[in-house]
Simulated assay, not measured.
Amino acid sequence: MKAPEHNLHKEKIVAQAMQIFLKQGIKAVRMDDIAQMMGISKRTLYELFGDKETLLFLAVESYFGECNERRARLSAGARDVLEAIFLELNELMAQSETANRIMSSLRKFHPAVHDRVLHEGAEKNRRNIREMLEKGIADGFFVADFNLDLAITMLYHTASLLVERRDLVLPEGMTEREAFVQVVSTFFRGIATAKGLELIDEYKNRIVSGTDRA
């Protein structure tokens, strides 16, 4: 079933608006600028979205949704769930510079949008982490006697800090990738079975060398 033309029109505007935000900066772009660059009236833009913050939220949500889909595609052919986890985390690092720039700008200039993106993104990402950990337990890569909710919280918030607040987290002289690899591999070693431990170093070394990057 085809999407209504009205929705397709909105989706196109959202996608193009995100490219404008990325190129010129979220703070600098006004609704007038978006309307002019797209060749539509400012009135149409406001009728469709109401205000800049609504359009901005939809644009950022769509952008991160596409990033999530890309990570899922990259991990779809993984040999096992451990490899899928490392492939997705590696791609997260590849996207981190742009993600950090977007979230930092939202935090400074549009805190309400920042908090909404953070909250809704956290729910989706936590569900994804849970599914992978449960799959890892079922496949014998992770032990079963740990608290899933605590593990998910620790991994998610540590990864988020490295992406969004690296200025507060990273020790001097350590790159974001080095820190991420160390934190993630240490986390998975802590819950891995002997079977899982055999593979963690292999996948870790592939991330360090960058051979898993698309």
Rank of each mutant, 00 (worst) to 15 (best):
I137L: 03
L168D: 09
G77D: 13
A99N: 08
Q182Y: 07
S41D: 11
C67A: 13
L161D: 09
L168N: 06
L162C: 06
R165S: 09
R189Y: 07
M31F: 09
A112L: 14
G65R: 11
R116S: 08
Q95I: 06
K124W: 07
L56I: 06
N90Q: 13
I26G: 01
V163D: 04
K27G: 13
L92W: 02
F142K: 05
V169K: 07
Q182P: 00
Q24R: 06
L58M: 13
E198R: 14
S96K: 00
E120Q: 04
K23E: 13
L22P: 12
E5P: 01
E134S: 07
E66A: 15
I200C: 10
D33H: 11
K52H: 02
E5D: 06
A151T: 07
K23H: 10
T186L: 08
K10R: 09
G196F: 13
D115P: 07
M38W: 01
I207G: 08
E61Q: 11
N128P: 05
T193S: 15
G121I: 04
R126C: 07
G136M: 09
F188Y: 10
E178L: 12
D115L: 11
I152Y: 05
G65Q: 13
A144N: 00
R79T: 09
E83K: 13
L170W: 08
A159D: 01
R70D: 15
R30A: 14
K42M: 12
P171W: 02
P4G: 04
I191K: 07
D51H: 10
D212C: 07
H9D: 00
V60W: 10
L82Y: 11
V113S: 10
V117T: 06
G39A: 01
F86T: 00
V29Y: 10
F64R: 12
L118R: 01
D212I: 14
D33V: 07
M154C: 12
R71A: 12
A99M: 10
E5T: 08
P4L: 04
I40G: 01
H110L: 01
M132C: 09
A179M: 11
N68V: 08
A194K: 04
S160W: 06
V113F: 01
F64V: 14
R30D: 15
D145T: 05
E120L: 01
R70C: 15
D80E: 12
A76C: 11
D51V: 10
V183H: 03
Q182K: 10
I191R: 02
G210Y: 14
D139C: 05
E53C: 06
M37A: 10
V163A: 04
V169A: 07
T211P: 05
T186F: 02
E5M: 00
G140C: 09
I200W: 11
V163N: 05
T211W: 01
R70Y: 15
I20D: 13
E178M: 13
E53R: 06
R71Q: 13
L8W: 01
T211L: 08
Q36S: 07
L89W: 04
F188Q: 00
R126G: 04
R213D: 15
L161M: 06
A122K: 03
